[in-house]
């Protein structure tokens, strides 16, 4: 599903955020990405969603070589990827329902289909009764769940999340991770950047560790519990 071949990312300032990164995440796999602040986690996710392009090396998503993808095809790539952002990135002047419906409207779904799918997604994250609320009236955890509902509403085969539990309490964080695992169980590939070692050490998934832009370790989250 995600394949990196010796990928480098150098930002215009000359800073090399990623160097020589290679890995392969299978379709249907769930993996975590960890590393110190500035290690390059966000940069790596941005390469996948083509928010940034690699300076060297190649990135394949679902067999598609991203360095060959023309700009006008980027929207269609992004529709295959559900992205959960670090900050919530909800449209504050639209209701929860409208926020979650946006990916479907963008993809040109029929209104009746939109309603059905939005309700299903909201139900999944336990916010079915808040569909008419505005994002500001929701708690941080609820907003994050709206973001997740929006990311999965058009059933993308790949789900990316950048610090999805960044500012949530441990209880809520566990709940959110549980949601991601649920989506993974129905076949969605999931890649989550986080530095919440406590949380992920209790799960059993693949773990990629970045340090100074290099992939320094490729193992399991369970190893964290041992080393801790």
């Amino acid at each position: 599903m995600i394949q990196f071949d010796n990928v480098n990312k150098r930002y215009p300032g000359g800073h090399e955020a990623l160097s020589g990164v290679s890995f392969h995440i299978q379709s249907g796999e769930m993996a975590f990405l960890t590393g110190h602040s500035g290690a390059g986690k966000s940069s790596l996710l941005k390469l996948i969603a083509l928010i940034e392009r690699s300076s060297r090396g190649q990135v394949f998503i679902d067999g598609q070589n991203l360095s060959r993808l023309k700009s006008r095809h980027i929207p269609y790539l992004r529709r295959k990827i559900g992205i959960v952002f670090q900050s919530h990135s909800l449209l504050l002047d639209r209701t929860v329902f409208d926020n979650v419906a946006l990916p479907l409207i963008i993809a040109g779904y029929h209104p009746s289909e939109v309603g059905r799918r939005v309700r299903a997604a909201l139900d999944k994250v336990g916010l079915l009764n808040r569909d008419k609320a505005y994002p500001i009236t929701l708690s941080g955890g609820e907003q994050q769940r709206v973001g997740i509902a929006r990311a999965v509403v058009n059933r993308p085969p790949l789900l990316l999340a950048d610090e999805p539990t960044g500012n949530l309490d441990p209880e809520l964080s566990k709940e959110i991770m549980g949601l991601f695992e649920e989506f993974n169980r129905v076949g969605v590939s999931v890649l989550i950047a986080t530095h919440d070692h406590d949380l992920i050490s209790r799960l059993d998934h693949r773990l990629l560790t970045l340090s100074g832009g290099r992939l320094t370790h490729d193992g399991r989250t369970t190893e964290l519990a041992v080393s801790a």
């Binding site: 679902d62 269609y76 085969p157 129905v186 076949g187």
Partner: peptide, 15 residues
Amino acid sequence: ARKSRTRPIKPEARG
């Protein structure tokens, strides 16, 4: 590797 896996959720991004 890709063919051997069945994807329960089909990508329907373009409807």
